[in-house]
């Protein structure tokens, strides 16, 4: 697989380590006043252990360990391994936070 790095251009996937579902970027809040209640515990359990694990389009974290050490969000098809979109993880996270604040 070739990953089209937004800064470096196409790079061999072997330079990267995949860290799984990109929803890991959105760690849930610990709960009111930093004291986790049951809802917060449930949210953290789901965040840490449960996965959508889709057959098809999947957003995932790839860390450029053997390169510039950037974190990327790669949108990839798990059925045929084709790569649809590559973004810097920090941009995705900023966008996610904005959406979450907007929703909250």
């Amino acid at each position: 697989m070739l990953i089209n790095h937004p800064l470096l251009g196409p790079r061999d996937a072997a330079e990267f380590t995949c860290f799984g579902d990109a929803s890991l970027l959105l760690r849930p809040d610990p709960g009111p006043n930093g004291e986790p209640d049951q809802a917060a515990m449930d949210a953290f359990h789901d965040y840490l252990h449960l996965r959508d694990n889709p057959a098809g389009t999947h957003q995932e974290l790839w860390y450029h360990e053997q390169g510039d050490r950037s974190w990327l969000v790669v949108t990839r098809d798990t059925i045929n391994h084709s790569i649809i979109k590559v973004e810097l993880a920090r941009n995705v996270k900023a966008r996610n936070l904005k959406t979450r604040e907007g929703a909250g």
Binding site: G20, D21, D46, H49, L50, R51, D52, N53, P54, A55, T78
Partner: peptide, 18 residues
């Protein structure tokens, strides 16, 4: 390997990656 796909139809998310 298809456990997540099957159980999704029951509305469940599993602690599994394929």
């Amino acid at each position: 390997g298809s456990s997540s796909r099957v159980m999704e139809q029951a509305g469940m998310r599993l602690p599994i990656e394929s």
